[in-house]
């Protein structure tokens, strides 16, 4: 626990520094030839979107590890990561919406990308609710892990939605090493912000993992107490 706290502090410091640099670069980025300064919304939107997918990938891995190896650590990490992923996907949807209104002319469109991203948020919230729906911690962990693994079907759908179907959302700007459609001075802030958000994700998952682990210890002590006194 103590070592985890130290790591978390280090990651936290690095996150703050990188976020500050990224924010400064984002606000200094040149105007886009079409979107003017609304292109700066991209620097919060794209890294949030990437993180909501990455965190889900992590939750899926942790869920498999839990069911397979019966590792409680994996379950704690899965539980800790879900609300973080939910926050990332909520910000993705909201920031996209705020960009969409002036650019597309609509807050929302039921196209494949937006719809599959909304489904991801529903899955995250559903996983949080399902875990709270059991009195027994072990049952909650197993049910949540199974549902999380089923939900992973949404990941390829989100990723390929802009390729498989015609969408209002633009196609991927990074499509293999040969195709990067974000030009130099607009790209650098995006890379810095992406790195910052990866650290932010790690920080929030570590922090939440400590909360979950501590809460479980308190709960087991309380149960013991109730048992001894009852």
């Amino acid at each position: 626990m103590q070592r985890l706290a130290k790591w978390q502090l280090l990651v936290g410091l690095a996150t703050v520094i990188l976020l500050a640099v990224g924010l400064w670069m984002s606000l200094a980025a040149p105007l886009d030839f079409q979107q003017g300064n609304s292109v700066r919304i991209l620097y919060a939107h794209v890294p949030s979107a990437k993180m909501s997918l990455l965190i889900y990938l992590f939750v899926t891995g942790a869920s498999i590890a839990f069911l397979w190896k019966k590792s409680e650590t994996a379950d704690i990490l899965a539980e800790a990561a879900v609300p973080v992923g939910a926050a990332f996907s909520a910000v993705t949807l909201a920031s996209g919406s705020i960009w969409g209104k002036p650019m597309w002319g609509a807050w929302w469109a039921w196209d494949a990308r937006l719809t599959s991203m909304l489904v991801l948020l529903i899955i995250y919230v559903g996983l949080m609710a399902l875990r709270n729906a059991f009195d027994d911690q072990g049952k909650a962990a197993r049910a949540t892990a199974v549902l999380a693994i089923i939900g992973a079907i949404d990941l390829p759908i989100i990723h390929y939605s802009v390729t498989w179907w015609r969408t209002l959302h633009q196609p991927a700007s990074f499509d293999g090493p040969g195709k990067i459609s974000v030009q130099g001075p607009l790209l650098t802030p995006l890379l810095v912000m992406s790195a910052a958000f990866i650290l932010l994700g790690i920080y929030l998952v570590l922090l939440n993992a400590r909360v979950v682990a501590t809460r479980r210890r308190v709960e087991s002590l309380e149960d013991e107490e109730a048992w001894n006194h009852g």
Binding site: D32, F33, G105, Q170, Q183, L186, L187
Partner: peptide, 17 residues
């Protein structure tokens, strides 16, 4: 009845319009 603009995936500084 509704017109939406569709953006391409290109992000390019205004100097390179």
């Amino acid at each position: 009845t509704t017109i939406l603009a569709k953006h391409s995936e290109d992000y390019i500084p205004i100097e390179m319009s």
